[in-house]
């Protein structure tokens, strides 16, 4: 088999994942795109392992490790997303702008300017049901057609 086939497939898959990471709004979708990128890497590792006939099977071992780490990553990532969603009422990553410079509406953030909206809700994070209940209408109100 030509090495070019898996290599090019991995490249394309990686770039699709890249697009997903950069273009998706929902944090869970971004995590999916990250999985795509990881799989592209894994594909590369397996293909090169097959090509090089490594006696230590470094490629395959590393693939296993990557899969395990990816599983851990997705677990932690989803936990973080859930926590953010519970605190902020939204998991849209382009609305989580607490690190922006200046603060306030004067910065003119084009993605919905949700600092005020998101900063209202954090008091509800330890309440069982209120956080998401409050968060949803707000996030729905804050969303606009892209």
């Amino acid at each position: 088999m030509h090495l070019a086939y898996p290599a090019v497939l991995a490249v394309l898959l990686f770039c699709v994942g890249l697009y997903g990471v950069l273009a998706r709004r929902n944090a869970v979708l971004v995590l999916m795109a990250v999985e795509l990128m990881l799989n592209a890497v894994n594909l590369n590792l397996v293909a090169f392992d097959a090509w090089l006939r490594d006696t230590l099977h470094a490629g395959q071992a590393l693939t296993l490790f990557t899969i395990a780490i990816a599983a851990a990553e997705i677990g932690i990532g989803l936990a973080i997303v859930l926590l953010v969603h519970r605190n902020r009422g939204s998991s849209d990553i382009d609305r989580l702008r607490d690190l922006s410079e200046g603060g306030g509406p004067s910065t003119g953030d084009p993605g919905g300017g949700s600092r005020e909206e998101t900063s209202v809700t954090p008091a509800t994070d330890n309440d069982t049901g209120n956080g998401p209940d409050q968060g949803v209408p707000e996030s729905a109100a804050g969303r606009r057609p892209a």
Binding site: A7, C15, Y19, L22, A23, P145, A146
Partner: peptide, 25 residues
């Protein structure tokens, strides 16, 4: 609104990366 406003930038970057990597590979 599943896609953010960053979509066109993302598309550009992804296509450029794909072109570069495919060429090199």
């Amino acid at each position: 609104d599943a896609d953010s406003g960053n979509r066109w930038v993302a598309l550009t970057v992804a296509l450029a990366a794909a072109a570069t990597l495919v060429t090199v590979v």
